[in-house]
Design a protein around this nucleic acid. Structure first.
Length: 702
DNA sequence: AAAAAAT
């Protein structure tokens, strides 16, 4: 095991014990040994007192696009905080580039609070050359690893601030590319979210019928709590599995168990679930096969949805869908010239005030599908008291990870700004001062994660009583254990009758608990023909010997294009990043043991191309969009098919091609096969040893 | 196991 390969100075991988000192980040530690920050140029001079000489040089930039501005804004936010609120925090993490305070958008309230000083002022930080990156020529951005003797680094000197630019460009490009695919929506039938019920037993999906039973959901809330006990029994459901199989227990976890309903609500029984949905047979599939393996992973009943025919939305424009001019223009700036199918389907309904459930595969444009109409609705609803100081927010968007919340804001903020509305991010890991300050001044849309939102809510610093539209991105995930309850508590604080929108690439009946309590007659949409086969991702499974794992991973990752590696634990993600680094392949990690600034920065480095390899835990599995990832490597196979779908969805976005490679050992073959069945993915399995041709073929960028 | 608040 490569773990100890580090030379003397290096500490063995095990050392990194994350948590204690949250602030101590792995990198910080590493850095110490060799290079003292002292040596680094940037740190001091420029660093102190807001000296931003360096940054200046970066300025020669071209004008910022809306997205870039937002990006800086958010980055600034993080840094800012650090300074203000917690002066000391190790925050160190150097502010990435954004440092460029770009003041342009001062519009935003927040910044004023902190006058100019740049974060450089931040005291300590010695270790890190601080701010560096960006501007500074300084070499390694990742000082960290330095002592490792690793040679590499130099290679990338080149980087320059390029980073941000590209992304937009890319985005756009991407979108344009796919644009063609969409076009008219064909909403034929709208099926109801339908009955939950029994379905679990796969067979009974009987009556297709009428679709709309519509709302079954209206039923007053059945709170989840109520029905506790029974489930087990009642849910004979999975019985079909008769296979008691092992893991039976594992699944308990799944929240769905908690999901009450189902039996209790007899009514539904009759509910027609239409099985014959056009094109896609089920939302998530393979119920029958699933049954067999339901051990770890459960395939929930599919939702009845109105299928949007991708090919038919041709000629439809965002304007036709009901969005105003400024918004349409901003969307175009963001690269969205024409609506994608999922967008064409949901926008009218959302503007219509309906509760909406939507499933669109990864990279299909869900953020704009709910974001644009949300902004339009808020705008229409506030015609009068706009910009009132201290106004309470009218729309809320929640996501499962901070990075995703940040990314969503990056897309929505420009849209909101274009019509004079303000957004603010409310997520943990950063001082709350700035967030609270923004709320005090008054914002219209808040985007964040459950923890901090609930925290501010309980502190009385966040008033959700005026929330008229609440969105749950990755809704099914938000219904899992650990997320469901906070989410429910938060939603209960929103205005009565507020509109609810649930989106996810794997939306299924797991969201029933929320639907039952919060949605009324929801419209359900999905895009016809969006099955895995129609995708642009190639899936491969490499069956290897455990002892060859590190070597094979290293060779897979040793390539020029962007590669995202998933590991099951934070420690392993960290270890892999170090191993790659030691092998001369620049790599960064992304997981919950890193402080938020580092998380944000490391992800940004992949996005900007400063680093090509990012090793992450499932924190990066859902929603994160990085343009050019053409290879996703699962160092550890996921336990659930949904996780597989989301992880692999980090590539092949917007119609591009991508490859997903999953490493497993022989004994995992069967489980892997079963999981792929649930995911409805066909992937060849190859027994591989280091140096095999297959590996070489896979690392070739596509 | 991970994520999500912070202390």
């Amino acid at each position: 095991m490569p773990k100890n390969k580090k030379p003397a100075g290096g500490r063995p991988a095990k050392n990194f014990e994350p948590r204690y000192g949250a602030k101590t980040s792995y990198q910080d530690r590493k850095r110490r040994p060799g290079e003292s920050s002292a040596g680094k140029p940037g740190s001091k001079s420029a660093g102190h007192r807001g000296h931003r000489a360096e940054s200046t040089d970066t300025s020669p930039k071209r004008r910022w696009t809306a997205q870039e501005k937002v990006g800086r804004d958010e980055a600034r936010g993080i840094r800012t905080h650090s300074r203000d609120d917690r002066p000391v925090r190790s925050y160190d993490d150097r502010p990435r580039r954004d440092d460029r305070p770009a003041r342009p958008f001062d519009d935003r309230p927040r910044r004023d609070d902190r006058p100019a000083r740049s974060f450089d002022d931040r005291p300590r930080r010695d270790d890190r050359p601080a701010r560096s990156f960006d501007d500074r020529p300084r070499r390694d951005d990742r000082p960290a690893r330095s002592f490792d003797d690793r040679p590499r680094r130099d290679d990338r000197p080149a980087r320059s601030h390029d980073d941000r630019p590209r992304r937009d460009a890319g985005d756009r490009g991407a979108r344009d590319a796919r644009a063609p695919r969409l076009d008219r929506v064909n909403r034929d039938d709208r099926r109801s979210f339908g009955d939950a019920r029994p379905s679990y037993r796969g067979d009974d999906r009987r009556s297709p019928s009428s679709d709309r039973g519509a709302r079954s959901y209206d039923r007053p809330a059945r709170s989840s709590d109520d029905r506790p006990p029974r489930d087990s029994t009642d849910r004979p459901a999975r019985s079909f599995d008769d296979r008691p199989r092992r893991d039976s227990n594992d699944r308990p976890a799944r929240s769905y168990d908690d999901r009450p309903r189902r039996d209790d609500r007899p009514r539904q029984e009759g509910r027609p679930r239409r099985t014959d949905a056009p094109n896609r047979s089920d939302w998530n599939a393979p119920t029958r096969t699933a049954a067999r393996e339901a051990q770890v992973d459960v395939v929930h009943e599919r939702l009845q949805a109105e299928a949007v025919q991708a090919g038919e939305v041709e000629n439809v424009t965002f304007g036709d869908l009901g969005l105003g001019e400024n918004i349409v223009r901003t969307l175009a700036d963001l690269g969205a010239q024409h609506p994608f199918p999922i967008q064409a389907a949901t926008i009218p309904s959302i503007l219509d005030g309906k509760d909406v459930l939507a499933r669109g595969r990864t990279g299909s444009g869900k953020t704009i599908a709910f974001g644009a109409p949300l902004v339009e609705s808020v705008l229409r609803s506030q015609s009068g008291g706009r910009r009132e100081f201290g106004r309470a927010p009218r729309a809320l968007i929640m996501a499962p990870t901070r990075e995703l919340a940040l990314q969503i804001d990056r897309t929505i903020q420009p849209i909101a700004r274009s019509v004079g509305l303000f957004t603010t991010q409310i997520y943990g890991g950063v001082p709350q001062g700035r967030q609270v300050g923004a709320l005090k001044k008054g914002v219209d849309i808040i985007i964040g994660t459950p923890g901090r939102i609930e925290d501010l809510l309980n502190q009385g610093k966040l008033d959700l009583s005026q929330i008229r539209i609440a969105v749950l991105d990755e809704a099914d995930h938000m219904c899992e254990l650990g997320f469901l309850e906070p989410v429910q508590r938060i939603l209960r604080h929103t205005a009565d009758g507020s509109q609810k929108l649930l989106f996810s690439a794997t939306l299924d009946r797991e969201v029933a608990s929320l639907v039952d309590e919060f949605l009324v007659a929801p419209a359900v949409y999905e895009v016809a023909g969006e099955d895995q086969e129609s995708g642009t991702i190639e899936h491969r499974v490499l069956v290897i010997d455990h002892r060859d794992k590190a070597e094979i991973l290293t060779s897979l990752v040793d390539r020029d294009a962007k590669t995202l590696v998933f590991a099951r634990t934070r420690a392993y993600a960290e270890m892999l990043a170090e191993e790659f680094d030691d092998a001369g392949i620049r790599a960064l990690a992304l997981h919950g043991d890193l402080n938020q600034a580092k998380r944000t920065r490391n992800l940004e480095r992949l996005t900007s191309g400063r680093v090509n390899v990012l090793v992450a835990t499932d924190v990066a599995a859902r929603g994160i969009h990085v343009d050019d990832i053409d290879l996703v490597v699962q160092a550890d196979p996921p336990d659930e098919y949904k996780t597989y779908l989301h992880r692999s969805g980090r590539t092949g976005r917007a119609g591009r091609e991508g490859t997903v490679v999953t490493l497993i050992t022989r004994q995992r073959r069967r489980r892997m096969t079963e999981m792929l069945e649930r995911a409805e993915i066909d992937a060849p399995f190859d027994e591989v040893r280091p140096g095999d041709r297959v590996i070489e073929a896979l690392r070739q960028a596509r």
